[in-house]
Computed example of a mutant assay.
Amino acid sequence: MVAPSPYASRLAQIPVERHEVNVRGGTTAYWVYGDPHAETTVVAVHGYRGEHHGLDPVVAYLDDIRIISPDLPGFGETAPLPAVPHTLETYADWLTDFVRAVAPGAVVLGHSFGSIVVAAAVAGGLEVPKVILVNPIGAPALEGPRGILTRLAVFYYWAGAKLPKPIGDALLRNGLIVRVMSVSMAKTKDAELRTFIHDQHDTYFSRFADRDVLHEGFVASVSHDVRAFAPRITQPTLLIAADRDDITPIEAERHLQTLFPQAELVEITGVGHLIHYEKPSEAAAAITRFLRPSADGRR
Rank of each mutant, 00 (worst) to 15 (best):
L95A: 02
A119E: 00
L95S: 01
A92I: 01
G110W: 08
W94F: 07
V117M: 11
V102K: 04
A92T: 03
H86Q: 12
T87P: 08
V99M: 04
D97A: 15
S115R: 06
H111E: 14
A119I: 01
G124N: 09
G124Y: 09
A103E: 07
Y91T: 00
V107H: 09
V122Y: 05
F113I: 08
V102S: 06
G105H: 02
T90S: 14
G114S: 14
P104L: 05
H111K: 00
D93G: 01
V107E: 07
D93E: 15
G114D: 10
V107C: 09
V117G: 09
A106W: 09
S112Q: 08
Y91A: 11
T90G: 01
D97T: 14
A103V: 05
A119D: 00
A106R: 06
V102T: 06
V122Q: 06
H86M: 10
V108F: 12
I116E: 15
A92F: 04
R100C: 00
T90Q: 15
D97C: 06
F98M: 05
P104D: 06
E89A: 15
Y91D: 10
Y91P: 00
D97L: 01
A121N: 10
G110S: 10
A123Y: 01
H111S: 11
L88F: 07
S112P: 06
L109E: 14
T96Y: 05
H86A: 12
A121E: 08
A123C: 04
H111A: 05
A92E: 01
E89W: 02
V108R: 10
E89T: 15
W94M: 04
A106P: 09
L95I: 08
L109Y: 13
T96V: 10
F98G: 02
F98K: 04
S115W: 07
Y91I: 00
A121M: 12
